[in-house]
Amino acid sequence: MNEPKVSLQRACRVRKERFGLLFYDSRGPRLLFAETGDLLEPGFFTGEVSVDETMDRLTEAEQRKVTGLLSNLVKKGFIREQQIC
């Protein structure tokens, strides 16, 4: 398994909220509310938390949810293209 590459765009930020993660894109500005609960930490997107280790501890259903979120974030321009598995 290749090390997944998850990287926020330069103009974007992420932080933890009660519902999960809040993404901000200063180019809009735009917001994206990700209802991830405690599934992911902001560090997942900033290199402070290992993507591999995070994915490994998730159930299959949770992994699918995260993969779906990543696809959406790429599509909406919040993160750069990445490779999962």
């Binding site: 932080r15 933890k16 909220e17 009660r18 519902f19 809040l22 901000y24 500005p29």
Partner: peptide, 15 residues
């Protein structure tokens, strides 16, 4: 009308 915003954010997005 955003339910996440209505619940209250832990900080403003911008100041």
């Amino acid at each position: 009308s955003n339910r996440f915003v209505d619940q209250g954010l832990r900080a403003p997005v911008n100041v």
